[in-house]
C-alpha cells in the first residue's frame, strides 16, 4: 500500500528534480549556441525563478521532516551513546581506583590503619566479577 505521507527523503528527491530542471534551463540560458533571442532569454530567466524557490521549499520540508523520521533511530543511538559512556567510565574507574589507593599509601593513610580496610579497593574484585559475567555471556551467546 502506498504511503499517504511524504518523508524527508521524498522531499529531497523532489527538490533535486526541481533543481535539475532549473539547472537545465540555466545551461540553456548560458549557452553560447542558444538560438533564443535576448527577450526570450529574459522571459525564460524570470520563469525559472519559481522553480528554484520551489526546490528550496521542498528542501526546507525535507529538513523539517528529518528529526521526526529519525525519531526511533535517534532514541536508540542516544541510549547507545550513554551506554558507551558508562562502559568507558566503568573501565576508567579501575585505573582510578588504583590511583586513589596509590595516593592513600603515599600519604600514609594505609599505615595509619592497623587492619587495612580500603573500601575503594574492594570495588575492583566486584568489577572484575561483573566483567567476567559479561564475558561469559558473550561466550555463551
Amino acid at each position: 500500500m502506498a504511503r499517504q505521507k511524504l518523508i524527508a527523503k521524498d522531499y529531497f528527491n523532489l527538490a533535486n528534480q526541481y533543481y535539475a530542471v532549473y539547472n537545465l534551463i540555466s545551461q540553456e540560458l548560458q549557452s553560447t549556441d542558444s538560438t533564443l533571442t535576448d527577450d526570450k532569454k529574459t522571459e525564460l530567466y524570470e520563469h525559472s525563478k519559481p522553480i528554484f524557490k520551489l526546490a528550496y521549499e521542498f528542501q526546507k520540508k525535507g529538513f523539517l521532516a528529518m528529526p521526526q523520521d529519525m525519531q526511533s533511530s535517534v532514541e536508540d543511538l542516544q541510549v547507545a551513546v550513554e551506554a558507551a559512556a558508562q562502559t568507558i567510565s566503568n573501565i576508567f574507574k579501575v585505573g582510578k581506583v588504583i590511583e586513589i589507593v596509590s595516593g592513600l599509601i603515599a600519604i600514609g593513610v594505609v599505615l595509619a590503619v592497623p587492619s587495612p580496610k580500603i573500601t575503594s579497593l574492594t570495588v575492583i574484585p566486584a568489577l572484575v566479577k561483573e566483567l567476567y559475567d559479561d564475558v561469559m555471556d558473550l561466550s555463551q551467546g
Binding site: A8, F12, A15, N16, Y19, A20, Y22, N23, S26, Q27, L29, Q30, Y45, S48, F52, A55, Y56, Q59, G62, F63, M66
Partner: peptide
Amino acid sequence: STGSVSIFVTSEKNSVLT
C-alpha cells in the same frame, strides 16, 4: 540531505551566473 545541498550549491551558482 547533504547530496541535495550539493545540488543546491550548483543551482545557486547557476542563479548567480544567469
